[in-house]
Amino acid sequence: MRDIILILSEIMNQIHDILMVRVGINMTDKQLHFWVIGFIGLVTFLVVFVLVKLIQLLKFHTTILSFIFTFIMMTVFVFAIEIQQAVSNSGNMEFADAIAGLWGFIVFFAVYAVVAGLLYGMYRMARGKKTGRKKEKLKKDRSTPIVEKNTADSKAEIRPEPNIDTMDEQNEKPIRTRTETRKRKESIR
């Protein structure tokens, strides 16, 4: 772990030297951080933005995005703990410790995903049977005619209920009650 941090800091020093000496850009440390971190942050944002747009097309996009965000937070947390151990001499700073901690999160999340998937599957199976019965009932209800009695003429007008599927295509709401039928007739007069 300590070796990785030393390698990363050496890489940053080399980039700093290249920009200062070879390119001829004279900047303070703060100015250099402003430009380099700003550029890296914007490129990272654009890559993440495209990935999130692609993930949104998937079925469980909220779960996937939550996992990615949590994994990134846990990675930062694990490395912060390892760095704190090195600074305070409260333990050994090892890359293997960080990996073990992240594996713990992945295993716990996998158990959660399996349990949640089983519960969701049982819910879908139970709900699927109920919706099958509801669809049959709706088909029977559609075929029943609407009987409207006009009080002025004392005649009963019988007409079939409009097909709900074709009404949606015409961008009109289907008539469900006698009151709606009466209101539509009055608006036509």
Rank of each mutant, 00 (worst) to 15 (best):
K134S: 09
A113I: 00
F69A: 04
K155E: 05
I15H: 07
E161C: 08
K183V: 02
Y123H: 03
L118G: 05
P174T: 02
L58M: 13
S9G: 08
A86Y: 00
E180K: 00
D29G: 15
A113S: 09
M167Q: 15
Y120S: 11
E172N: 02
F77W: 13
M125L: 14
I18Q: 12
V21Q: 08
R184K: 09
N89H: 01
M1V: 05
V107F: 01
V78A: 12
A116H: 08
M122R: 11
N171E: 13
F77R: 10
N150R: 01
R178E: 15
M122A: 06
A126E: 13
A116P: 04
Q85V: 03
I72Q: 12
V48S: 04
M20F: 14
K139G: 05
H33W: 14
K59C: 14
R2Y: 01
H33T: 06
N163K: 11
A110V: 06
A116M: 02
L8S: 05
K134D: 03
F34N: 05
D168V: 07
A100R: 12
G24F: 04
G41Y: 00
F71I: 09
K139C: 09
T179Y: 11
A98E: 05
I37W: 07
S187I: 03
R2K: 04
G24L: 06
F60M: 11
G128E: 09
S187Q: 09
K137F: 12
V50D: 08
K139Q: 12
P174G: 03
G38R: 08
K130Q: 09
E180F: 03
V47H: 04
A110F: 13
L6T: 04
T28E: 12
T75Q: 11
R182P: 09
Y123W: 03
F77K: 08
W35L: 02
M93S: 03
